Simulated scan of single mutants.
Amino acid sequence: MTRLRILIVEDEAIIALSMEALLGTLGHEVCATAATAGEALEAAARDRPDLAIMDIHLADKTSGVEAAAGLFHGWGIRCLFISGNLDDDTRAALEPYKPLGFLNKPFLPSRFADAVRSLTL
């Protein structure tokens, strides 16, 4: 398995920490975490991750959809989307950014691990 450098974009600190720990056990490196769309773009410019794990609703009323657009257009970074709101309209809005997958919250650690293992860049 290839070791990936991953950006976590999640505004709930406990969830971000949990994902970071799980990614570490899977052999990946979390190069940065961000709670807002702006922080995500700054982290991408600085750390150049291989991919991002992206929540849809972020802190400061910023949007994971907008963050994903910036990551994709700025650096070609694709996202695994994790949210409690992954309805058909949201999924359709994300299609131009070539999603790596979708995972609904709340999720079990095993489902998260399976989603990460299934990633193909």
Rank of each mutant, 00 (worst) to 15 (best):
A67L: 14
A52P: 05
E20M: 03
P109I: 00
R46L: 15
G38K: 10
P96M: 15
C79R: 11
S83K: 01
F102N: 00
L22Q: 02
L41G: 14
E42M: 15
L71F: 04
S83H: 02
M54P: 12
A13P: 10
G24R: 13
G74L: 11
K98V: 15
A37E: 06
L58D: 07
L26W: 02
P106N: 06
A40K: 04
C31R: 03
H28I: 05
G70K: 12
A32R: 04
A35S: 12
V116R: 04
A44S: 14
N85R: 10
A68F: 00
V65C: 04
G84F: 04
T36Y: 07
F102T: 01
L103S: 07
A35D: 11
G74F: 09
H57A: 10
A113L: 01
V65N: 05
A40R: 02
I77H: 02
G84W: 03
R91I: 03
P109Q: 07
L86M: 04
A68N: 06
D88V: 08
L58I: 07
D60S: 15
H73K: 09
G38N: 12
G70W: 11
C31S: 10
Y97M: 10
R78I: 01
A34G: 08
R48I: 07
E39Q: 12
N85W: 10
A59D: 15
L71P: 01
E29K: 02
K61A: 14
F112N: 05
I77A: 08
G64C: 05
R111F: 06
A113P: 01
L103E: 09
S110Y: 04
E29T: 08
F112D: 01
L23F: 03
A16F: 11
A44P: 09
A93T: 13
F112Y: 08
R78Y: 01
W75D: 08
D47F: 05
A16M: 12
A34D: 03
E95T: 15
A68M: 05
P49T: 07
R111E: 11
G24M: 12
D88C: 08
G70E: 12
F72G: 03
E95H: 12
C31L: 07
D87W: 13
F81K: 02
F107T: 13
A92D: 02
A21L: 08
L108K: 00
A13L: 13
A93L: 14
A40F: 05
P99F: 09
A44H: 05
F107A: 08
V116D: 01
L26Q: 02
L80K: 07
G24L: 11
I82K: 03
T25R: 13
L58G: 04
P109C: 06
A32E: 13
I77G: 01
T25E: 11
G27L: 09
A68E: 03
A59T: 08
M54I: 09
E29N: 04
L41Q: 14
N104C: 00
F112L: 07
T36N: 09
M19V: 03
T33N: 06
D60G: 10
L86Q: 02
L17T: 12
H73R: 10
N85I: 09
R46E: 14
R111G: 06
E39F: 08
T33F: 05
A40M: 08
K105H: 04
P106H: 03
R91N: 06
I82H: 06
D87P: 13
P49A: 11
R78D: 00
R46H: 13
S110K: 00
T90L: 02
P106M: 07
S83Q: 05
